[in-house]
Amino acid sequence: MSNLRPALFLDRDGVLNVDRTFVARVEDIEWIEGAAECIETFKARGWYVIVVTNQSGIAMGHYTEADMQSVHNHMQSVLAERGAVLDAIYHCTYHPEASIARYRKDSFDRKPKPGMILQAMADFPIKRETSFLIGDKPTDIAAAHAAGIGGFLFKGGNLATFAEWALAAFEDGTR
């Protein structure tokens, strides 16, 4: 019997939390309605739930990797208190036009490229053909398709409701 499981990939800013251009402090987090419920529901189904997020604010000098890690730790803690445990958060700090030289590169991990998703698939026993991503930008969807998974564009509202719609659409063959 295979231990492969499907994964729900989520972008961070604009999907889990309100996109404020650069979310660099815990105080900047404003949750999207239904975010915790979405994660909890998919985890109860036996899915992996993994965040994949571009963090170019680091490359541009708006905040540090330590700031980002503090935000991620806080997000994971708040979600876990609500019964919504993330399996992993993958991030890309690189940008080809970064103002900080060490982050200036065209990274395979930066969406719309699929590096973060493919790395998660290498790290976890993920069943690619039953996995999909929810993102709020076309680059998120492009990364999903480049990784060989479905992608759905979230334009706001309740994430749990949207994820249920996306799952039904995905199972019907809409990507």
Rank of each mutant, 00 (worst) to 15 (best):
R12F: 06
T21Y: 13
H74V: 08
T53Q: 00
T139A: 09
K105F: 08
G34H: 01
N54F: 00
M116V: 08
S70T: 10
H91D: 12
E164C: 14
M75G: 01
D87N: 03
S70Y: 07
Y94G: 07
D172A: 13
S56M: 00
E171A: 10
H74M: 12
G57T: 11
I100Y: 04
S56Q: 03
C38M: 09
D106K: 10
E65I: 11
Y63P: 04
A169F: 02
Q119S: 10
D19K: 05
A84M: 11
V18D: 04
R104E: 07
I149H: 05
E81H: 15
E129N: 15
Y48M: 12
S99M: 14
W165M: 14
A84Y: 07
T64Q: 03
D67K: 06
G135W: 02
T93F: 03
T64H: 06
T41G: 14
D19R: 02
S131I: 02
H74D: 09
D13M: 03
D136A: 13
H62S: 12
E33H: 15
Y90D: 10
T64P: 07
E65Q: 09
P125H: 10
E164M: 13
Y103K: 00
Q55N: 14
L10G: 01
A101T: 15
D123V: 07
A166Q: 08
Q69S: 13
G83N: 01
A35C: 00
G156W: 05
A101Q: 12
L118R: 05
L8P: 07
E129Q: 15
R104S: 01
F170H: 04
S107Q: 07
D67R: 06
A146E: 08
Y90S: 02
F170N: 05
I58A: 01
C38V: 09
F152D: 08
H91P: 09
M68I: 14
P112S: 00
T174D: 15
L159E: 01
M68V: 10
P138R: 13
D123S: 08
L8S: 01
F42K: 02
F154E: 14
Q55T: 12
L16N: 01
K105L: 11
M121L: 00
G115W: 02
A24S: 12
V23N: 09
L79G: 01
